[in-house]
Amino acid sequence: MNHIKGKIAIITGASRLKGIGAAICRALAEDGYHIFFTYWTEYDKAMPWNIKSNEPQILKEELRQKGVMAECMELDLSNPNASVQLLNLVNDQLGHPDILINNAAYSTNNDFSNLTVEELDKHYMVNIRATTLLSIEFAKRFDKKFGGRIVNLTSGQFRGPMPGELAYATTKGAVDALTITLSAELAPLGITVNVVNPGPTDTGWMTATVKNNLQPLFPFGRVGRPEDVAKSIKFLVSDEAEWITGQIIHSEGGFRR
Rank of each mutant, 00 (worst) to 15 (best):
M1Y: 10
K5T: 15
K5Q: 10
K7I: 15
A14M: 08
A14R: 02
R16P: 08
A22C: 10
A23Q: 04
I24K: 00
A29D: 01
T38H: 01
Y43S: 03
K52G: 15
S53E: 14
E55C: 10
Q57Y: 07
K60L: 15
K60A: 12
R64T: 09
R64L: 09
K66H: 06
G67S: 03
M69A: 14
M73Q: 13
D76F: 10
N81I: 12
V84W: 15
L89T: 12
V90W: 07
N91P: 01
N91I: 04
L94T: 13
H96S: 13
I99P: 02
I99Q: 06
I101Y: 12
N103Q: 11
A104E: 09
A104F: 13
T108C: 07
T108A: 05
E119T: 11
L120A: 11
D121V: 12
T132P: 04
E137N: 11
F138T: 04
A139P: 00
K140E: 04
K140Y: 06
F142N: 11
G148E: 11
I150R: 02
V151C: 02
V151A: 02
V151W: 13
N152G: 03
N152L: 13
L153P: 07
T154Y: 12
T154N: 01
S155E: 01
G160F: 07
G160S: 02
M162L: 08
L166A: 04
T170A: 11
K172Q: 07
K172W: 00
G173T: 08
A177R: 05
E185R: 05
L189P: 06
V193A: 09
V195N: 03
G199N: 05
P200N: 02
T201I: 15
D202F: 14
T203E: 00
M206T: 03
T207K: 03
T209C: 06
V210Q: 11
L214K: 03
Q215M: 13
P216R: 12
L217G: 00
L217A: 00
G224D: 00
G224C: 07
R225P: 06
E227G: 06
K234S: 15
F235N: 14
F235W: 06
E240K: 14
E242P: 00
I244T: 10
T245M: 08
G246L: 11
Q247E: 15
I248K: 08
S251A: 13
G253C: 12
